[in-house]
Design a binder for these strands. Structure first.
Lengths: 145, 145
DNA sequence: GCTTGACCTCAACTTAGCTTGAGGTTGCAT
DNA sequence: ATGCAACCTCAAGCTAAGTTGAGGTCAAGC
């Protein structure tokens, strides 16, 4: 087998499907903390493959990199995370999925009501009012501050 | 009752919860096409309230403004859309919701499998591979071109 | 008929999440 | 020992979806 398990950034990119620049960007954001060779090249742990895969998955669930960082804060960067570690943060993700599904089902229900009435006519419309609730986490017009 | 049903932009903003600047931005994008007074001020049809509400809803389902424009292309800009019009495009949205729910259920299922094995370890991992499927429409690392 | 709040345009700025490019260095295979 | 692909940093650019501000105009009520 290979002498040690440290991966250069290109390998990690190939194995995660991420671009090299994206991985460097994630490092900048503190999501991964690779080691460095004496010549300053990044060397990643095998466990970083999981870490990055997790980032991809969490992103697709709509979490921002900041939120992902928080979630990953529980995972020790030095130690290869074990099943219990993953179970914990996967559990958090699972809750998020459940919440999203529930929200979507609510929308669908409201929309079905609206299809009948052709409304979408504000104030009195369930869909419209629901909108303000499931707005958290959506895109929508930005309200700064 | 009021002489005619043309609304200035501020009224529309108040009634949709959007900001004035956002509505102007949507016009720029071709999502609404208000009339103009002789003095060049925008005047919106009542039906634009629905139109904008629909935009808000569709956005929260993760559609981009471009996709929303496509969906709305079926709605005539001059004529007040009727129940059948709305039914048609609401139907499209409903399908989208269904698809999203199904995708999330798939992820949840896979994640449950992964919690057991603590994997997330690529290639062989269902979650990882699923990722590439439900990636369409997600955020994720940008791949241009 | 004047005032004043609502409206107008246009340009520049914002945030997230990256990509691209320039210019230079490393490290593995031969 | 050397070639060259893969790596490095840093700055600038990009997209989406708006916001903010400057400087100016409109229109409705008194």
């Amino acid at each position: 087998m290979k002498a040690n398990d440290l991966l250069p950034i290109g390998d990690l990119a190939r194995r995660t499907g991420l671009s090299v620049s994206a991985i460097r960007f994630y490092e900048e954001k503190g999501l991964v903390e690779p080691l460095r060779t004496s010549g300053n090249q990044r060397r990643f742990l095998r466990s970083d493959i999981r870490r990055l895969s997790f980032i991809l998955i969490a992103q697709k669930l709509g979490l921002s990199l900041g939120e992902i960082e928080d979630a990953l804060a529980d995972l020790p960067q030095g130690r290869t995370p074990n099943a219990a570690d993953w179970k914990k943060i996967s559990g958090e993700v699972r809750q998020r999925i459940d919440a999203q599904i529930a929200a979507l089902e609510k929308v669908r229900e409201d929309l079905d009501g609206c299809i009948g009435c052709g409304c979408l006519s504000l104030k009195k419309c369930a869909l419209y009012n629901a909108g303000d609730k499931w707005g958290e986490g959506g895109v929508g017009p930005r309200v700064l501050r």
